[in-house]
């Protein structure tokens, strides 16, 4: 059982701003059903001031994905779009009173969603962070073995710390450190 904060439970059970705005000014869908997390974010924007008047979300995902989305909407309402783009996943984690390490990716999805929705309003295409090829090694940041292998080869890496600096992998809960070391050792022995 995950040790969720009371706030995560509260937002999960009683999410704020759940739904979908008709004919939204900005719209984004991030994540995917096959990854178990999918979030739809719709924005109502006052065009004269570029201020976010209303935000609604719909999420297919776990409790922390729903809670992260709810918190994101509250953080975004009332902000100008430039201010909204400064919302980070750490802001979401802080509002939730923390997230288990294995669930940090839920807050990352929130940050990606607001960025993509604002881009949509501005008519900019968002480069979607597709899941890369390979097996996910670092669950917190969703980093695959392929990414780690590439970093090892390109930078002649020998330690887990270096991998974390270059790719973020292993930077949160650390449970993947042995797997990362295995990859480093394997490549360095080749």
């Amino acid at each position: 059982m995950w040790e969720y904060s009371d706030k995560v439970f509260e937002y999960f059970k009683n999410p704020k701003n759940m739904g979908e705005i008709e004919n939204p000014d900005g719209r984004a869908e991030v994540g995917s059903e096959s990854c178990g997390d999918l979030m739809l974010l719709t924005l109502r924007i006052d065009k004269a001031t570029d201020t976010i008047k209303d935000v609604k979300f719909k999420t297919f995902g776990c409790a922390s994905a729903i809670a992260s989305a709810s918190v994101l909407t509250e953080l975004a309402i009332g902000k100008t779009i430039d201010e909204a783009l400064k919302i980070t996943n750490n802001d979401i984690i802080r509002e939730l009173g923390g997230l288990p390490n294995a669930k940090i990716h839920c807050s990352v999805m929130g940050q990606e969603a607001i960025e993509a929705a604002v881009n949509n309003y501005r008519g900019i295409e968002t480069v979607i962070h597709e899941h890369e090829e390979g097996t996910v090694i670092c669950n917190c940041f969703g980093i695959t073995d392929k990414t780690i292998e590439k970093a090892v080869r390109e930078h002649n890496i020998t330690t887990v710390d270096e991998i974390t600096r270059y790719t973020k992998a292993g930077g949160a809960c650390q449970s993947c450190h042995l797997d990362i070391q295995d990859i480093i050792d394997k490549l360095n022995n080749e």
């Binding site: 999960f12 059970k13 990854c35 178990g36 995902g61 409790a63 294995a102 999805m109 996910v136 669950n139």
Partner: peptide
Amino acid sequence: AILLMMADEGICASSGSACTSGSP
């Protein structure tokens, strides 16, 4: 999400996946 909502009703079941990663 289903498990936690059910747990709120006192029902204990299980899901095949422990969603840890958005791993596919």
